[in-house]
Write a protein that binds this DNA or RNA. Structure first.
Length: 334
DNA sequence: TCAATTTGACCCAA
DNA sequence: TTGGGTCAAATTGA
């Protein structure tokens, strides 16, 4: 694995800080804009809320993209959702190969071979409805101890043809209102689903609901990005998205196959061009997402900060690192 | 016919 | 030892 050198790290850091500051500025403007009383056709100011939202989205996208290069080197992981961004370190001690001293089995007899993930030591839970714009294929389902519903395992459809390693787990965690928890692992490396920024897609009234997804498309008019820290989203339910239903008719979710389909509504939010024939949707329900990274491990110092310190610092940030605080965080790493 | 899903088996990590 | 993640044959559906 190629690890970034200190100069590269510094460049990345500066990039992220710049992007986040820009995003914060845009967010501040957006908040101010939204606070102004609405008058018909005038949202006030020279910059529209939509433009600001797009700027924020772009900042997220570019920041995460920059961070992603770190993440890809196993240095940290980024979790962003619901107005909260978490950056966490990754345990570097659990990347043993699956060999583990055992005799290698023939390919046909290697079912179940895997490396247990080091799930994020910190992660974010977001309530939203999600259409993540990626094509997923279900590869397993498992009853999990102390859970009512089985956990479903999905991998990227392009795992084999493009070697995309992205996977996710979906688990229904609540009956009423229906809540699903989605945990993402790895990044999409497939060509048509290059990871972009998490987007928060607004409902009809952006103040009433929004959702976060790792959408593959640039934000659309409907995809306003609004961040409401600590706010439980009311989700874009069928009502909110109904208007799109006839437009796209994208296929229903892989997720629904393992989750009570009677509670699922077809999610029409995504253009099938990018979501593929089988994009993953969980709609008509609350949907929590836990986004985390999966990494192999190393112990490269980050700008003179050894990984232990780095981990500690990130751990301290663990729980509620708001978007606006991100820029302030990064210098602490150097 | 082909692709997606289901499901039991397998194996690793805790 | 056991829970959890993945594989792959069998099944299902378009």
């Amino acid at each position: 694995m190629d690890l970034p050198n200190p100069q590269q790290l510094r460049t990345i850091q500066e990039t992220v800080i710049g992007k986040l500051l820009k995003g914060k500025e845009s967010a501040t403007q957006l908040v101010a804009l939204l606070k102004k009383p609405r008058s018909s056709g005038d949202r006030g100011g020279s910059v529209s809320a939509e433009e600001l939202a797009l700027q924020i989205s772009r900042s997220f996208s570019e920041s995460i993209s920059a961070f992603g290069s770190l993440e890809g080197n196993g240095i940290c992981q980024i979790v962003a959702a619901d107005g909260v961004v978490r950056v966490s370190s990754v345990d570097r001690g659990s990347s043993k190969t699956s060999d583990n001293g055992r005799k290698r089995l023939g390919v046909k007899d290697r079912r179940g071979c895997y490396r247990r993930r080091n799930v994020a030591q910190s992660s974010i839970i977001v309530s939203s409805t999600v259409e993540d714009g990626h094509a997923w294929r279900k590869y397993g389902q498992k009853e999990i101890l102390n859970t009512t519903y089985p956990r479903c395992y999905f991998r990227c459809t392009h795992k084999h043809d493009q070697g995309c390693k992205a996977t996710k787990q979906v688990q229904r965690i609540k009956e009423e209102p229906v809540v699903y928890q989605t945990t993402y692992f790895g990044h999409h490396t497939c060509s048509d689903t290059l990871m972009r920024a998490p987007q928060i897609i607004s409902d009809t009234d952006p103040m009433d609901s929004c959702l976060l997804s790792f959408e593959t498309k640039a934000p659309t008019k409907q995809n306003l990005l609004l961040l409401y820290p600590n706010r439980v989203m009311t989700t874009a339910t069928a009502t909110g998205n109904q208007e799109f239903k006839d437009e796209t008719q994208s296929d229903v979710s892989d997720n629904k196959s393992c989750l009570d389909s009677s509670t699922m509504l077809q999610n029409p939010t995504t253009n099938s061009e990018t979501s593929g024939p089988r994009s993953s949707n969980v709609n008509g329900a609350y949907h929590e997402e836990v986004v985390s990274g999966m990494h192999s491990c190393s112990s490269t110092p980050l700008q003179g900060l050894d990984m232990e310190d780095f981990s500690t610092k990130f751990d301290d940030l663990d729980d509620h690192l708001l978007f606006g605080d991100m820029a302030g965080l990064l210098p602490a790493l150097s």
